[in-house]
Design a protein around this nucleic acid. Structure first.
Lengths: 250, 250
DNA sequence: CCGTACGCTGTACAACGTACGCTGTACGGA
DNA sequence: TCCGTACAGCGTACGTTGTACAGCGTACGG
């Protein structure tokens, strides 16, 4: 079910659009790689949070009006296609130039840009951050976001390793907030979700045994469902990140 | 490929081991649900970071010496099996009683317990936190971890929603650190990984265009690979979390 | 003692990723 | 001008997945 040799060099060349000096023999290509990736992205977006995981070669081929195997002339396999989709999404992000602005504002901008990413592409929050793509999109994103730490790195005397850790720290809290947000705006809008579970839960969730879990769980669940203050978790996380980083400045 | 009706009540009953008052007619069951879950956990653990996603009904059945379809008399489907595995892992976590200790120590204990979880079960870091399992394991974990926030909630005047957000904040940073750690201890030990990519990257990663990305990326990569200070990212994240939460105390 | 509820499983189907080999195209060199 | 060849596209096929369905056999309740 998986290819034998997922040559990383080939994938990188594809990501960076480094053509293998094609001798233009044979028929012209009927599709454009950028189109393929764009259609794949649209399919993934339509698939909700599991969109990227659920993206299938056959569905994409159907969408593009070609046979499934045709896609393999454009892309080595499903995994690499997903990498291209991810990197394209990173490349397409809006990046505010906040050069010279105070560090809190710069980091907030980065956080908001990533929040927008997660809203545009719900699957982005499920992308494995431990497996870097190393494409042009990710690289540009990385460079831009590292730059936002210039002033803070200076003030707090962060070395490069700490700067990277600080960025990871921020991005991860943003991702977590996105996951929470997706849960409430998810397929079932809370009420039905809880209604289906309430009968068993009432029977089993002993408030004397789990006092905090029952109380806090109910409060947190209600807060998420009510659209009264949907940004609360988001602002909490961001403020905690900024305060945590501010403590580095002695 | 997916079941038609993933009845949530049935799954909850299974998680909490609420028997449907079985009239004990017919043959005895040859397997124990706890055994099934234990073997599934072992299989997932052996499968590395993708272990839970890669867990297949057929493989588990082979392991248990039964036909694949037999498992469907114990569990509604693959998804629910995964939920049981997750909840069992939560239930099995060691939980230090830190009642009365200072809040930083209590939160550190929670962080370390979850770090141990991620080391025992690499797939745990990939479990979707937006989809709560609501089993006894998760509930006990939630209760225990909320309790660790008692003093801080008091000092910082956190309401229940904030308390939940603060816990989520902490757990997510721990998860992120686990993902980073898994990347370095991963399948290929860094050197080979970079060697395969270096030729293309050198050709394409312009240090003038991406100065910080190239510099910081190299430093961060080297820091992860070198086992010199493997805990550095971990300690950074934890310290940032504690400082960020400490700022809530006015 | 037997009817029936239920554990177990063989078979089958739809969907998946993708290897292999064919067909037809269109350019580079003769 | 023509043709060899490199390459785009794809039909077919294989192995894998989750799981629906129907049959078989067991063992308890009446």
């Amino acid at each position: 079910m998986t290819a034998v040799a997922p040559d990383p060099a080939r994938t990188l060349a594809l990501l960076w659009r480094v053509e293998p000096a094609a001798g233009a023999r044979g028929p012209r290509r009927g599709l454009d790689l950028d189109d393929v990736v764009a259609r794949a992205t649209a399919l993934a977006d339509a698939g909700g949070p599991e969109g990227l995981a659920g993206l299938s070669v056959r569905a994409l081929a159907r969408e593009l009006g070609v046979a499934p195997m045709t896609l393999y002339t454009y892309v080595p396999g499903r995994e690499e296609l997903a990498d291209l989709v991810v990197d394209a999404a990173y490349a397409a992000m809006a990046r505010r130039d906040t050069t010279g602005r105070p560090w809190r504002e710069r980091l907030t901008a980065v956080a908001e840009e990533n929040r927008a990413l997660h809203r545009a592409h719900p699957w982005a929050a499920r992308v494995d951050p431990g497996r870097p793509v190393l494409g042009p999109g990710e690289t540009a994103k990385y460079e831009h976001e590292l730059a936002a730490f210039d002033e803070l790195a200076d003030l707090a005397d962060l070395d490069d390793v700490d700067r990277d850790a600080a960025l990871t720290f921020l991005l991860d809290v943003v991702r977590a907030a996105a996951l929470v947000e997706q849960q409430s705006t998810g397929p079932s809008d809370g009420t039905a979700w809880w209604a289906a579970r309430a009968p068993v839960l009432e029977q089993v969730l002993d408030p004397e045994r789990y006092p905090r879990a029952v109380r806090v769980g109910a409060a947190a669940g209600a807060a998420q469902d009510s659209a009264r203050d949907p940004d609360r978790a988001w602002r909490f996380g961001l403020a905690r990140v900024l305060d945590g980083l501010a403590a580095l400045i002695d």
